[in-house]
């Protein structure tokens, strides 16, 4: 299948098509965030045998819009002794980092906002923005809880980027590319060609499947840690640190942190989708595959991962800082290294 940007084909390569390519993910992000917030509310409610929001619209489906309107109306408070510049800047830095990640995500063979050949590397690079935003916000709030949360998040995100990067490196080794479209293309065909099941190859590849499964699991865990979701939500840790780095934020700035969290969730989910679940490939080979079906398969796979994240959040308790470090450095990193070496050998041998 050929990859291209459909906007370039329609309008021609111009400024307009570039702006439209950047706008489309933004629209997608807003719609997705609303759906994800509703999903979080409803899934948490159903898991806890509650009804969840029921008043706004039929079955409460307009609840996320109501929440956004509420957050927009709220008073914007800046603490007296806060560093105003950094305090105001932090949510935008975080959101920018999250949104910039969308630039390289291939939604379909016919659409990736920016088709660059270093996509994976780029996503990890802009993902680090989140740390800067959190530390900035936590420090500038002039609140001890915020500071503790910021420090925790810095150590957490930096240490979890290493196993995450190892996993992604393995994918690059398997696909022989860092280009996200290329990685997706490398997994074309039915679902047993996904890297989750060892990638395309003869049936003898069966012995690498445990390693790729393990790798995807490791990436799932690191992605939870990088997006500050339970069980790794210790930077927020509402029972300990009240709200962590966003204790002092209110109104729209808080909403920006919120949006950024959901955007980050989608980014890590889409990286997992692209790297292990075949991206926009149909699970049934040629059946239901195409440029439009690509969007469908990609979003539904990514949303499934988002659902998994929400599901895990409402099941598990929170880990402690030292246990988090133990898990990151002493469990995930060695396992990821082993898998990396095994899969590199597999790549050389076959």
């Amino acid at each position: 299948m050929e990859t291209f940007n459909f906007l370039d084909k329609i309008i021609g390569e111009s400024i307009l098509s570039a702006v439209l390519s950047a706008l489309l993910p933004l629209i997608f992000l807003i719609v997705y965030a609303l759906i994800a917030i509703l999903g979080e509310l409803k899934i948490s409610a159903w898991i806890q045998e509650r009804l969840g929001p029921m008043r706004t619209g039929p079955y409460g489906i307009l609840q996320p819009i109501a929440e956004v309107v509420k957050l927009l109306q709220k008073e914007d408070i800046v603490p007296t002794n806060a560093n105003r510049l950094l305090f105001n800047l932090a949510p935008f830095v975080m959101f920018t980092g999250a949104f910039a990640g969308f630039a390289v995500i291939p939604f379909s063979p016919a659409f990736a906002p920016a088709h660059i050949n270093l996509g994976l590397y780029y996503i990890f690079a802009v993902g680090a923005f989140a740390v800067i935003g959190i530390v900035m916000g936590g420090w500038a709030s002039n609140n001890k809880y915020s500071l503790l949360g910021a420090m925790r998040s810095a150590s957490q995100m930096i240490s979890y980027e290493i196993p995450g990067a190892l996993v992604v490196l393995t994918a690059a080794v398997l696909a022989n590319s860092l280009d996200l479209q290329e990685i997706s293309l490398a997994q074309s065909g039915p679902f047993w060609n996904w890297f989750l099941f060892g990638g395309p190859g003869p049936w003898t590849k069966i012995w690498v499947i445990p390693f790729t499964l393990l790798l995807s699991l490791i990436f799932m865990i690191t992605s939870l840690a990088e997006t500050n979701r339970t069980p790794f939500d210790i930077p927020e840790g509402e029972s300990e640190l009240v709200g962590g780095y966003h204790t002092e934020y209110s109104g729209m700035k808080f909403a920006m942190f919120f949006f950024a969290e959901y955007a980050n969730m989608f980014i890590v989910a889409s990286v997992l989708t692209i790297v292990f679940l075949g991206g926009w490939n149909s699970p049934f080979g040629e059946f239901m595959s195409g440029y439009f079906w690509g969007v469908f398969w990609f979003t539904s796979k990514a949303m499934f991962i988002v659902f998994l994240q929400i599901w895990l959040r409402w099941t598990l308790p929170r880990v402690r800082v030292d246990q988090l470090m133990f898990l990151g450095w002493k469990v995930l990193l060695p396992f990821a290294l082993v898998c990396f070496i095994v899969l590199s050998l597999y790549r050389i041998l076959y």
Partner: peptide, 16 residues
């Protein structure tokens, strides 16, 4: 106690 450790769901099962 579960809530303090970060688990929200058992809290509501027990309250039910």
């Amino acid at each position: 106690f579960g809530l303090d450790a970060g688990a929200f769901t058992p809290f509501l099962y027990l309250f039910r």
